[in-house]
Simulated scan of single mutants.
Amino acid sequence: MTADRPPSFEQRLRTVVASERAPARLRAYFAARSESGVIPYTGSRFEHLGGGGDRPQVMNTVTAEDLLAVQTLSVTIPSQVALDLLEGDLGRRISALLSRIPHDLDMVDADAADLEPGSPADDAWRLLLKQDGIGWVKAGKLLARKRPRLLPVYDEVVKCLVGRPKSYWLGLHGALRADDRALHRELLELRASAGLSETVSALRVCDVVLWTHHRDDHRRRGCAGG
């Protein structure tokens, strides 16, 4: 008897998105402030803080608001790197790359060439990765703030849940486009069932539902890399 084949990357994603608890998890994550002014999940402000990192006035520039937004996802850009992004050569180089990355494109509508090695998005990620104190999680979150429809938030919790794919960007892109874009449609339906604004991208819905699905188990079990 042969062992059962493990679920594919796409199957893992669709199982989580189809979970009966997914709408409730999304509603809890994006819940409004409590009477005392507490925001249940600060990450719910990640893409909207200050009007968003992809608004026309700043879409190709890293701003102080972007750095604060990244903090809502529990990471901090080191001060030297932050200053270089705001006032130095690093900021100018990142801006030049951002100007070549579409700001109004959903991942499902992108070509693989927009995400693969050698693309401006990948070049920006690798440039950030070279900076002291910037690992793959921080680099990805900063770019997700600037291009929330095209580039996902990705951390160890999500990486553990989806099976540690070689390329999360390309794997997710393929999954969103597979089966006549079934997963993308399911994310839009999930957004609607959770009562979220259309300003929350399908990609961000995916980010949040994956993270909230596995976060507690990840911490409790002490998953590798957690």
Rank of each mutant, 00 (worst) to 15 (best):
W136E: 09
T63N: 07
S167F: 04
G133C: 07
S74E: 14
P78G: 06
W125E: 06
V209W: 10
E35F: 05
G140I: 01
D123I: 10
L67C: 02
L151M: 08
G37N: 11
Q71C: 08
V38G: 00
H184N: 09
A144Y: 01
D89P: 00
G43M: 09
D132N: 12
G171H: 08
R5Y: 00
Y41C: 11
S167T: 08
T76R: 12
A18T: 03
A32Y: 00
W211G: 07
E189C: 11
R221F: 03
A139V: 01
G88C: 10
V58C: 13
A113T: 12
G225P: 06
L86F: 06
L68R: 12
C160W: 15
V205Q: 02
R185Q: 13
P40F: 11
T199R: 15
W125Q: 07
S44K: 04
D180G: 03
M1H: 12
R14K: 12
D66R: 03
R92Q: 15
R147W: 03
L68D: 03
V70G: 02
Q11K: 14
L97R: 06
F9C: 07
A64H: 10
G225Q: 08
R25C: 03
D216V: 11
P23L: 11
K130F: 01
V200F: 08
D217H: 14
E65W: 10
R55M: 12
A28Y: 01
G226S: 14
A182C: 08
L86C: 06
S99D: 14
T212R: 14
H218P: 00
S167H: 09
R33C: 07
V16W: 11
V209M: 10
S167M: 05
D84I: 02
L97G: 04
V157A: 05
P23M: 09
R45S: 10
F30K: 04
M107V: 03
L176P: 02
R100P: 00
E156R: 13
R177G: 00
E189S: 14
L86I: 05
A32Q: 12
G171I: 06
L188H: 11
L196Y: 11
T42G: 07
L129Y: 08
R185N: 10
L187A: 10
T61I: 14
S197F: 08
L49A: 12
A24W: 03
A64L: 13
T212L: 07
N60K: 06
S197Q: 10
E10G: 05
H218W: 12
S201Y: 05
K138W: 00
T15Y: 06
L187D: 07
A112R: 14
R215F: 11
C160Y: 13
V153W: 04
D114G: 00
V62R: 02
E47Q: 14
V153S: 06
T63M: 09
E116F: 00
D217S: 13
P117M: 08
S19Q: 12
T72Q: 08
C206S: 09
A192E: 15
A121C: 09
K159F: 04
R185L: 10
P117R: 10
K146V: 01
A124K: 02
Q71H: 07
A18L: 07
L128T: 02
R145H: 04
L85H: 04
K138G: 02
G37H: 12
R204G: 08
D104M: 01
R14P: 00
P165Q: 09
M107H: 03
